[in-house]
Amino acid sequence: MSEHPDMLLSVKDLSKHFPITTGLLKRQVGAVKAVDGVSFDVVKGETLGVVGESGCGKTTTGRLITRLIEPTAGKVVFEGEDITHMSQSRLRPLRRDMQMIFQDPYSSLNPRHTVGTIVGAPFRIQGIKTEHGIKRAVQDILSLVGLNPEHYNRYPHEFSGGQRQRIGIARTLALKPKLIIADEPVSALDVSIQAQVVNLLEDLQNELGLTYVVIAHDLSVVRHISDRVAVMYLGKVVEIGGRKSLYSSPLHPYTNALLSAVPIPDPANRTGRERIRLQGDVPSPLNPPPACRFHTRCWKAQEVCKTVEPVLTELASGHQVACHFPENMPVLETTAPAENTTA
């Protein structure tokens, strides 16, 4: 998958280590490896979903891409340009093309500003001239995201959670970005509202040709919205692949366990379904297990998993996994290092 002609974003070996200090002199004794050598590409017009449990580094990854925090190592290439070490002033015009949607529609909107001010702010900050004035442009965006343009002068508290998330989306759309990083865009919303916002995101993608990186913990939402999915565990991507292939035949035991853990809204599944139950919680990223980080909870773990770190390998077309003993091995291809041991 090297140098796709329509490549929009490319992340290579991205790492973020937060130092841990101790003692009187604040000596550094270690690091929380929040993100540890993450690589993936995003092609124009597609949606990459990033899933994982708490502490897997998915949110940090999103912030690294948008340079909200500085990476420890690795690089972020956006539209062919390495933005990893770009100065803030050179970055500013690029920020128009790369926007972020946040989880909490309550705290991410300034309560003292009207909707018009919030959605119009990007125009003012970036100094963009609009054809019919900023107000008109803002109202166009408001109707685009399904809000009443007459709500221009209202304040965030007058809106429900779903409407606030629409305001948040309207704000990111103001400058016609190319890439939107959405960090848990629907997890704070009610079920019936979630679906509205998911549909809105899809419609906007079709209309405006947007590219998304959607970060979420909800596997169902991610499957619904994504073209490709990356599964993260303790700062690493353990599996990445096309939506269909990843959900129907997950290669990594962790992905398999994750999918098996999602409660299915069908009572028939109570008995018929094969369940994989992982032991314990996700280990702390402060002191992650060596080699394969999943080996402490993995039912297939062997000695090699504790000593040799598995690398991301392409086992099926466009479907990579970092595991010594992958599940659901494609029958035709036998390039894998391990035997097929489907549970």
């Binding site: 429900s160 409407q163 019936s192 299915i264 809204p265």
Partner: peptide, 21 residues
């Protein structure tokens, strides 16, 4: 209709309830 489900084939659209609670 609002819930994306893992046990069904994903289609293009969810069927949300309009409006808010």
């Amino acid at each position: 209709g609002s819930m994306p489900r893992l046990d069904r084939e994903p289609t293009d659209r969810l069927q949300p309830i309009k409006g808010t609670p």
